[in-house]
């Protein structure tokens, strides 16, 4: 991430593109943002699970699917807490290149192992925790928002701890985990 982007990523801003509607009030806006983060993460993990399915890596697929459903659950909880009957509209784009709780598609490998997937998830949770923590510390933010951000940061911290535990239970990859004796296939 470029320095300018990092600077921009510190506070949630109004979504960039037209066609999205600003939330009513800073607190609702913040919660809509949190909701978008969780749904983005859930969708991305689901994408990853699909990729692993297609590439005959069922173990990692299952893990990504599990992560996806956890994030979807978080999103659902936000809806319930806010009493929203319908989800708020997703922003077209985030100010930062990658949403705070997702990993770029480019980080995947078809031979990746559960440990890699958890490493990736760990980084996401850490970034999410930092994202909320920054807002919790932001003096300009309304108290209501800071309070919510503090709670969410705490939750993400808990996720970080859980994933660290989880990582202890899966084997660390061998050195040549990405070795493939065959050349790539041909298609069209």
């Amino acid at each position: 991430m470029s320095p300018t982007k990092a600077a921009r990523a510190t506070t949630p801003k109004k979504p960039r593109a037209n066609g999205t509607r600003a939330a009513a009030g800073p607190y609702a806006q913040f919660m809509a943002r949190a909701y978008a983060m969780e749904t983005d993460a859930a969708e991305r993990y689901a994408d990853f699970a699909d990729q692993m399915d297609v590439h005959n890596n069922p173990e990692v697929a299952e893990l990504f699917r599990k992560l996806s459903s956890i994030e979807a659950l978080h999103a659902k909880r936000i809806l319930e807490e806010m009493g929203w009957k319908q989800p708020p509209r997703a922003p077209l784009a985030w100010d930062e290149a990658e949403p705070p709780e997702t990993t770029a598609h480019t980080e995947l490998h078809y031979l990746m192992q559960p440990y890699h997937a958890l490493q990736l998830a760990l980084r996401n949770e850490q970034r999410a925790e930092q994202f909320f923590a920054r807002i919790a510390r932001a003096r300009k933010a309304p108290p209501e928002v800071r309070r919510a951000a503090t709670e969410l940061a705490e939750e993400e911290r808990e996720h970080v701890r859980l994933i660290r535990e989880w990582m202890k239970r899966v084997p660390k990859p061998e050195k040549d985990w990405d070795r493939d004796p065959d050349p790539p296939g041909l298609s069209d």
Partner: peptide, 30 residues
């Protein structure tokens, strides 16, 4: 509290088919 924005008719997910890409994991095209 009311929802902060009117719910969209469709989300990005609604534009994704159930046919899964054959691209290599890691590919930018995803």
């Amino acid at each position: 509290m009311n929802a902060p924005a009117i719910a969209p008719a469709l989300t990005a997910q609604d534009f994704k088919s159930d046919y899964k890409p054959v691209w290599c994991p890691g590919c930018g095209d995803y």
